Computed example of a mutant assay.
Amino acid sequence: MSNFGRVYVAGHRGLVGSAVWRAFEARGCDDLVGAASSDVDLRDRDAAFAFVGAQRPDVMVIAAAKVGGILANSTYPAQFLSENLRIQVNLLDAAVEHGVGRVLFLGSSCIYPKLAEQPIKESSLLTGALEPTNDAYAIAKISGILQVQAIRRQYGLPYISAMPTNLYGPGDNFDPLGSHVLPALLRRFHEAKASGTPEVTIWGSGTPRREFLHVDDLADAVLFLLEHYDDPETINVGTGVDVTVRELAETVADVVGWEGRLVFDASKPDGTPRKLLDVSRLADLGWHARTGLREGVESTYRWFVEHHAAARL
């Protein structure tokens, strides 16, 4: 049986939260709590406080967030900043108010400067300008890290934060207007194969390098960190391996079985040139990702095909 006690997974129906929920279940945790956004609006301070107060969890994992790719972040920066700030401030304040003993706040690798030295160490935080296409989201997540650190200083509570790299897996968002690059490519190639489309255009030059972590690996890392990590500095979670966007597109197309021509539109933004996390601190603790990129894309595509009607399209 689990020794975590009652666990509240905020955002338990999303890509990350659902994977974390599965990981706790696999560990034998039989006292999991969560609430759909339609039942508890975490942007509402009173609602968030009331829920945490009623449930009294021992552990809280903050995976609830408004997320999206370059297009969504560029189009709706005000919402990305405001909604994420409200969600995490409400949850962290409620955790302190209602005596939650252990909290893990999940951020994003976009918190680091656009031109940070590669691979990116945790110490790079706040040392340079952010990538403009997602700076509003990044500022919100940076605020969450600093709030965790402030809580530790003021109250001495063992709250921690972790910064995962680009995530993908079952339950991802495949909406072309709101999804990240990997699920967006997967859907586009699937539809191109079905329709016989000979050519697919992809934003950017194809040269930026990105790191991808299967969400089930992140969930495993969440449990590992709750048991083995207690430090004010955020900690990176990734694979330590990156690929170009072109290489990613070629892998996804091959997995889907689409054999058309890739066209890269260099007039569209590339985003950060490279974003590879230094995961040496987590590796020194004894944790390593286990899912290779192709293996992960294959399993995600199988999930997409099997759940196509219910997937977020």
Rank of each mutant, 00 (worst) to 15 (best):
L226I: 09
T300C: 10
D41W: 10
E211H: 02
E97L: 14
R153P: 00
L276C: 08
V245W: 01
L285C: 10
A47S: 14
Q154P: 00
D58S: 14
R86S: 15
N166L: 13
P119T: 09
S299E: 15
E25V: 13
H307M: 05
E122I: 12
L104N: 05
R187H: 11
D278L: 05
D230V: 02
D93T: 12
C29L: 01
G69W: 11
L182G: 08
E227I: 00
V40F: 05
P232M: 06
Y8V: 05
R188E: 14
L42Y: 11
V148H: 03
S123F: 09
S267C: 00
T75G: 01
L277D: 04
A194C: 07
D278N: 15
G206H: 09
V89C: 12
E247P: 05
R281V: 05
E97I: 03
N3C: 02
A47C: 06
L226E: 01
G34M: 03
E295L: 07
R22M: 07
V67W: 03
H98S: 04
Y112R: 04
S82Q: 04
T272N: 04
E295H: 10
R43D: 01
D39Y: 00
Y76K: 12
A219Q: 09
L186C: 06
R43H: 03
R290G: 10
S195H: 11
A219H: 10
Y301H: 14
L91M: 15
G99T: 09
K275H: 11
V67K: 01
V215W: 06
Y155N: 10
L167Y: 08
H180G: 14
A249R: 08
V59H: 08
F24I: 02
E25R: 15
S267T: 15
I160E: 13
A36F: 06
L282S: 03
V255R: 03
L85C: 11
D39N: 10
G286A: 10
Y229M: 08
A35T: 04
G5S: 06
A116Y: 06
L104W: 01
S205V: 07
K275E: 14
V61S: 02
V243A: 09
Y229I: 06
Y229E: 04
L277Y: 07
A47T: 03
T272H: 01
S161C: 11
